[in-house]
Amino acid sequence: MQPFQRLTAPACPLPYANIDTDQLIPARFMKRSRAEGYGGYLLHDMRFSGNGTEIADFPLNQTPHRIAQIIVARRNFGAGSSREAAVYALVDYGIRCVIAPSFGDIFASNAVNNGLLPAKVGERDGEALIGLLQETHAELTVDLETQTISAKEISIPFAIDPVWRTKLLNGWDDIDITLSQADAIALFRELDSSIRPWVTPRIRDGAGQTTI
């Protein structure tokens, strides 16, 4: 996983609350292989009209914002389904950080697993950033080490779970850490089988019951 330390990049304001995962990537595109890239489907139905033409006044379609690597949105960004494809769409488009007052829990977790920083800011600070970007098309600097976002005269703090911060700073992958815990897992299983003997499914492939 690519580490995230400090990023200075163009940012796009998306002044909407509840940008859910169905907006981030509509379900009909999720059959495709990741190898094809999901960036073209990011916010598809907000970016394009029914006949496939770009919606001119959508911020991400405006020339200065097209190359954004940072998105600033309102509360509850990424609410909804667990589809990691929502994060793939952002990452494949080139987005490396989303700034919002709150995030869907599963989305935020998926984001961190793909090196995308979910930076949580206060409502007022978020509005200030949106206002600034609407006026000036500024670049933002996001510093994960110091947990600050700065642009021109503005400098605001952001919050992130400390564990996620460490993981992003180092680009760590959980699986290798887990595999090193094999002994602890074996010990847990041994104890657990006497405490909760009813955990194991009774049949591997039952004949199937006939009533509900």
């Binding site: 990691e84 977790s109 998926n110 697993n113 779970d161 959980d174 699986i175 887990t178 815990q181 897992i185």
Partner: peptide, 20 residues
Amino acid sequence: FGIGASEVAHVLMTQTLWQR
């Protein structure tokens, strides 16, 4: 609880998950 694809892969490989 619901999990994303990276977490699904982690559970498939280890039957465990890191959480806070």
